[in-house]
């Protein structure tokens, strides 16, 4: 069974392989390929809402957002795992996290044609945005289910997952905010590469009320 089938159909086996140092480089390489491809296809489908140019931009930006989030959240996952008595080394943590990312990106890859169909059918901005959000959430849940397996049945699993979800969610939202727009706001005559009048401090800044519009 190839890595791509294994990570979807037999994630337990992939979890086991992440602990095998000789199998790890191959898993990480393939996971990075999945994340890039899955993110690019999903981004492309979403960006088609505003035409080819935006589709290509979103296809480039979405994998970068995912990889950036994973890179920033990696050390946190390693620390959280250790705090909850899973003494994973850093390389194993990165492999597990990327394999989870690969699983979720393969789901995004599967959802991308459906999103493309919604876009092509002429649905409005809100409907497309909601569909994209639903697709991304589905991918996220799929990745989370991989991490549930990685943490095993020993006590502390829920706590560890909750802590990591909090860190990953915050970093992910902040990264996505910095790289927006992906769909392209219909109010913009021409979609910018990055959002106009960006609120400095990103999503967290906006939530905390630190508004310094450019």
């Amino acid at each position: 069974m190839s890595f791509y089938s294994q990570v979807l159909r037999a994630p337990d086996q992939v979890v086991g392989q992440c602990f095998d140092s000789s199998a790890r480089p191959s898993i990480v390489g393939r996971a990075l390929a999945c994340i890039t491809l899955g993110g690019a296809c999903f981004g492309f489908a979403a960006g088609m809402f505003r035409g080819w140019e935006q589709a290509l931009t979103a296809a480039a930006k979405l994998p970068i957002v995912t990889l950036l989030t994973l890179a920033v959240a990696g050390p946190a996952l390693c620390t959280i795992a250790r705090a909850f008595e899973r003494p994973w080394d850093f390389a194993t943590t990165v492999a597990l996290m990327l394999a989870a990312g690969a699983r979720s990106s393969l789901v995004l890859l599967a959802v991308a044609p459906a999103l493309g169909l919604i876009v092509d059918s002429g649905f409005g901005y809100s409907a497309v945005r909601l569909t994209a959000l639903a697709g991304y959430s589905l991918g996220g849940l799929s990745g989370l289910s991989f991490l549930v397996r990685a943490f095993g049945a020993a006590p502390g699993r829920s706590g560890a997952l909750l802590c990591f979800a909090l860190v990953f969610g915050t970093v992910g939202v902040q990264s996505a905010w910095l790289f927006r727009p992906f769909l392209g706001d219909p109010r913009d005559a021409e979609v910018p590469l990055f959002a106009h009048g960006r609120v400095e401090g990103g999503m967290l800044g906006a939530l905390l009320g630190a508004r310094h519009e450019r």
Binding site: S21, S22, R24, P25, V28, L32, L67, L70, A71, V72, G74, D89, F90, A91, T92, V94, A95, L98
Partner: peptide, 13 residues
């Protein structure tokens, strides 16, 4: 940030 820990994890690579 993602590849270096794996590349340096062991000589197995």
């Amino acid at each position: 940030p993602l590849w270096l820990p794996v590349a340096f994890s062991t000589s197995e690579a």
